[in-house]
Amino acid sequence: MSSQPQAEERVAFALPLTMSGASTHFCPGCHHGIIHRLMGECLEQNGLGESAICVGSVGCSVFIYNYIDVDAVEAPHGRAPAVATGVKRALPDRFVFGYQGDGDLAAIGFSEIMHCANRGEDVTIIFVNNTVFGMTGGQMAPTTLLGQNTTTSPKGRDMDKDGAPLNMSELIASLDGTAYSSRVAVNTIKNIKQAKKALKKAYRAQNQKQGFSFIEFLSACPTNWKMTPLQANEHVGTTLMQRFPLGVFRDTVE
């Protein structure tokens, strides 16, 4: 069985050109890879590959620039929205997007993301929520679920000690500077198709300079949830979505 199209065959699915094609460092079953491809696809379909500037963050998400082949700059932990603000103000006609995990965005970077949204910066922030600090070995994050065990909440997250998980999409949707805020997932084909639509909408918000656009991707983290990839994928649909319902929380995009 050849890896090349034979007679009468056409390639029905290939990696977008905006992707580098490098195999990823992510753990088996981690959803980062799927999210990267959707973003790469959306960049390609909107002809944005040559004008895109990616702002990476610190965490498993940092290596996005190895997989999406666009100009990129690394931001210090939590500061991608501020760096993206600077990039967009310097180059207003470029397509600027940030890619952050939940530790980066909702813990140390909470001030930066809220103010970037509140200023209505014409940038798009992709937020990958897997409820833990992944790269550093699965510590509790601001989106860790109540009762969820992590390496720093061994007896499960405790409401009295650690507070409840933060619903970032809803918080950001409450800000006037936000043009689009939604939460999606990539654990099923239906959700993947929805996520693609959300990306298109967010990209349009930026291109039409209608304000801040934000998409939260629920993501599996088999390694740090101590689950198999299939269990983790399942867990996203059953448990995560109870606390983090999918949906569009603000959409003023024409």
Partner: peptide, 26 residues
């Protein structure tokens, strides 16, 4: 030019980093 009163001095230096990455004077 662009003037932003940032959310903090941390926000400000990181906005500068973004502009610098684009080769502009900040």
């Amino acid at each position: 030019g662009e003037f932003i009163q940032a959310e903090s001095e941390i926000g400000a230096i990181n906005m500068l980093l973004g502009v610098a990455a684009c080769g502009k004077r900040a």
